[in-house]
Simulated assay, not measured.
Amino acid sequence: MVNEFAKDPEAAARYYIDQHPTGWACLTPDATTGANECYCHDRGEGAQDGWTTTQDHAASYDWTYVLRPDGLEVRRWDHGVVALVAWDADRVDWEEIERKGHALP
């Protein structure tokens, strides 16, 4: 999913934030459908107008993501950066990223 933005964080922001304002359950593509799982479409919960995640609110999530010019920063909340996935990455090993994140103190 990350590599389809071709080093364009603005395109990623339009997709991840503007088109899916309620947030994401999972950014790892589903093994069956190949799709990510957002709260506003895939779970049928409906987009919430004006919904945003603040830093205070983000502490309730296990994983947070930062859109950077050089890629998608994957973080375990309060434990630090787990990975920086380049926008043009040919392959992303999400399972390895998850293992590294869970190994953080």
Rank of each mutant, 00 (worst) to 15 (best):
R91W: 09
Y39C: 01
A6Q: 13
Y39A: 06
P29K: 07
H20Y: 04
R91H: 14
L67N: 12
Q48F: 03
W87T: 04
T64Y: 02
A86K: 10
R91E: 13
A89F: 11
R43Q: 14
A31F: 06
D70G: 01
T28Y: 04
A58R: 09
Y39P: 01
A6H: 15
A13L: 06
A83C: 04
N3K: 15
W87M: 02
E96Q: 14
V81P: 07
E98Y: 06
V81Q: 05
N3D: 14
C38Q: 02
D8H: 09
D8L: 11
W94T: 03
A103R: 07
V82L: 01
C40A: 12
W87F: 00
T22R: 13
G80Q: 03
G101V: 01
N3A: 12
E37N: 07
H57R: 15
R14F: 13
R14E: 14
G44F: 02
D18L: 06
C40S: 13
F5R: 02
D62N: 06
H102Q: 08
C40Y: 03
E10N: 06
E98K: 09
P105F: 12
H102C: 00
A12P: 05
V85A: 06
Y16T: 01
T32Q: 09
D78E: 13
Y61T: 08
T52F: 03
N36A: 15
H41C: 13
E37V: 10
R91D: 13
D62V: 08
K100G: 00
R43K: 15
N36C: 15
R75T: 05
R68T: 00
D42K: 11
A25H: 14
C38I: 10
D30A: 00
K7A: 15
Y65D: 00
F5P: 09
T32A: 15
T52H: 00
H41M: 08
C26Q: 07
A6D: 09
A6F: 12
R91P: 00
A59F: 04
P69Q: 04
T64G: 07
E45G: 05
G34C: 09
T33L: 01
D42A: 13
R43E: 11
R76T: 01
T28W: 03
Q48D: 10
H79P: 00
